[in-house]
């Protein structure tokens, strides 16, 4: 049962991710990203990370992607060329891609492959992955990191408003 669910979710997540890159219409790309995120939430559920799964759907599929879909529906509909090389990135692109590939390979070979043959952690403490345990971690053990991260998000939000909101009297803004 769990194995079937895992493979369904994994195939769905991979398919969604591939679709994002290979679909030509931006609107479909965004939709396939939504599919990917939903299957990712199922994978989180399989890992007993229930709060993370719910947060994933609420925040990403429910809020972030809504804005993506909103924008893509307005300006999308144009078939973008699949590969449109920007001159300067012709060299830098492959180098960065290779770097990321090596990095991920090291991570996979180092940890994930070792765990493949095992049964996984069977002695999870009670309440693992619940909102209560995550809340304790975020607001007791890692309070400073949590607050720094929220401060960073606040700065980004303020910056976005400053960049987007032009003062009255500037060019192209009425009163």
């Amino acid at each position: 049962m769990l194995e079937v669910l895992f493979f369904l979710a994994a195939i769905g997540a991979l398919g969604g991710a591939v679709g994002v890159v290979f679909l030509k219409n931006p609107f479909y790309s965004v939709l396939s990203l939504v599919v990917h995120l939903i299957f990712l939430a199922v994978l989180f559920l399989l890992l007993e990370a229930q709060f993370l799964a719910a947060a994933q759907i609420v925040v990403y599929a429910g809020a972030v992607m809504v804005i993506y879909v909103f924008v893509a529906a307005y300006v999308g509909g144009i078939e973008e060329p699949l590969f449109d090389p920007i001159p300067r990135l012709r060299v830098l692109g492959p180098v960065l891609a290779a770097a990321i590939f090596i990095e991920i390979s090291i991570a996979v070979l180092g940890s994930s492959l070792v765990a493949l043959g095992t049964e996984g952690a069977s002695d999870l403490e009670a309440g693992f992955g619940t909102p209560a345990s995550i809340g304790l971690l975020l607001l007791e053990d890692f309070l400073i990191a949590f607050e720094v991260a929220s401060l960073l998000l606040l700065v980004t939000a303020v910056a976005a408003i400053v960049l987007a909101g032009r003062k009255p009297g500037e060019e192209g803004v009425e009163s």
Binding site: F51, A53, A54, A55, A61, T130, P131
Partner: peptide, 10 residues
């Protein structure tokens, strides 16, 4: 479920 109301929002 412990996530309760979050399920509704999801």
């Amino acid at each position: 479920v412990p996530i309760g109301i979050l399920y509704f929002f999801a």
